[in-house]
Amino acid sequence: MNNQNHEDGTMDNGKNIIEIRGLKKSYDDGTIKALNGLNLEVKEGEFVSIMGPSGSGKSTLLNMIGALDIADEGTIEVAGIDLMKTSQLNEFRSKEIGFVFQMHNLIPNLTILENVEIPMYETDLSSKQMKDRAMELLKAVGLEDRADQIPTKLSGGQRQRVAIARALVNRPSIILADEPTGSLDSQTGDVILKLLRDLHEKENVTLVMITHEPYVGNMAERIVNVLDGKIQN
């Protein structure tokens, strides 16, 4: 990637998959301004780290990109869809976004395979197609032999690998990872980061990752610093 980085978070070259202009979001009747006129552009296939102190607005930004929350003001277009106007947010999340959370958030009473299949329930795939696709992803994260086990039988790193498989299963345009190594030891964290980076390159999927760790952030192609609800680069 040879994109020119501007201070306001916008870029010069390539096609934008995320375009945010003047995004504002406040909580508690406006007393907490989580996003305060934030601008950001992310190119298709880019790996971006979002860094910043606690309460700076990183997670709110990620939630806005993933359509888990709605902004108060501004414009946000992701994968060509205006999130301030569309009413099909579920469909957007299902098709375009894959989430990887800090806590893997697997469903404990379902098997590993079923956990990976969950996002496909909203698609038209047959149960065999769903199973084949889930197994393909489990193989990619090296857990195909654990498909019939429940999450409690896996280590933290293995659970996060399952979460990554789940995030990729619908072939999304963007992976949004919220501190994916935050609950792991450094060695396991490295394995997860390498896996994420490899899959990002192999699947040509855009990767937006929140992290506190400069070491983790430096693995990205671009670092975006957020402070007081704005981009600081």
């Binding site: 888990l68 579920n90 999340r93 969950i118």
Partner: peptide, 16 residues
């Protein structure tokens, strides 16, 4: 609740 949040995050519709 958290589980339902995950299902929503992966795109499950309210009807489902």
């Amino acid at each position: 609740t958290r589980e339902i949040g995950v299902l929503k995050a992966v795109g499950w519709k309210e009807r489902r």
